[in-house]
């Protein structure tokens, strides 16, 4: 019972903190990066879709290691799948 009351109290506190932060964020948005991408991404990367321009040109380093993450996952899963074969 005490656990539940504490949990609900914490959730209400977090809701209060998040909602107050959201109203604070609405007045203080920094738009320099967004404006830079909207103005220059077609000229610099040749992509009409700004998301593609970002993840294949400005942030290609991140994308390549994100694909390596999938490769490591697949290698692990196939390793665990093959481990069962010889005995059972």
């Amino acid at each position: 019972m005490i656990k539940k009351i504490t949990l609900i109290g914490m959730l209400i506190f977090m809701l209060f903190v998040f909602s107050s932060n959201i109203s604070w964020l609405e007045d203080n948005i920094d738009t320099t990066t967004k404006d830079y991408y909207i103005e220059n991404s077609l000229y610099e990367t040749g992509s009409r879709n700004i998301v593609t321009g970002i993840y294949l040109d400005y942030r290609l380093f991140d994308s390549i290691f994100e694909t390596s993450l999938l490769l490591i996952t697949v290698s692990g899963i196939t390793f665990m799948y093959k481990k069962d074969d010889p005995t059972l």
Partner: peptide, 8 residues
Amino acid sequence: NGHLTPGG
């Protein structure tokens, strides 16, 4: 069409 439309 990843560079023209949403997706990739």
